[in-house]
Computed example of a mutant assay.
Amino acid sequence: MSTPPRPPRIAVLNDYEIVVAGIARMLADHPEHVEVVELDTRRPATDDVDIVLFDTFARPGEAGEQTLSQLADSSRSKIVVFAWNTDPELVEKALSQGAAGYLSKALSAERLVEALRAVHDGERIVETPSPRSATRPVGDWPGREAGLGARESEVLALIARGLSNQEIALALYLSVNSVKTHIRNAYRKIGAQRRSQAVRWALENGFDTDPDRTRL
Rank of each mutant, 00 (worst) to 15 (best):
E35V: 13
V36E: 06
L39A: 08
T41K: 10
R43A: 11
R43S: 10
P44S: 08
A45I: 10
D48W: 10
V49I: 13
D50P: 11
V52C: 06
F54D: 02
D55F: 11
T56N: 02
T56P: 02
P60W: 00
E62M: 14
A63Q: 06
A63K: 09
E65T: 12
L68D: 05
S69D: 13
Q70S: 15
D73A: 15
D73I: 03
S75D: 02
S77G: 10
A83R: 08
A83N: 05
T86G: 01
V91P: 04
V91Q: 11
E92C: 08
E92K: 10
A94V: 04
L95Q: 01
G98Y: 00
G101A: 02
G101D: 03
L103G: 02
L103D: 00
S104M: 13
A109G: 14
L112S: 13
L116R: 05
L116V: 10
L116T: 07
R124I: 13
V126R: 02
T128I: 05
S133C: 07
V138W: 15
W141D: 01
P142I: 09
G143T: 03
E145R: 13
L148Q: 04
L148I: 03
R151W: 12
R151D: 12
S153P: 02
V155E: 06
L158P: 14
I159F: 06
A160C: 03
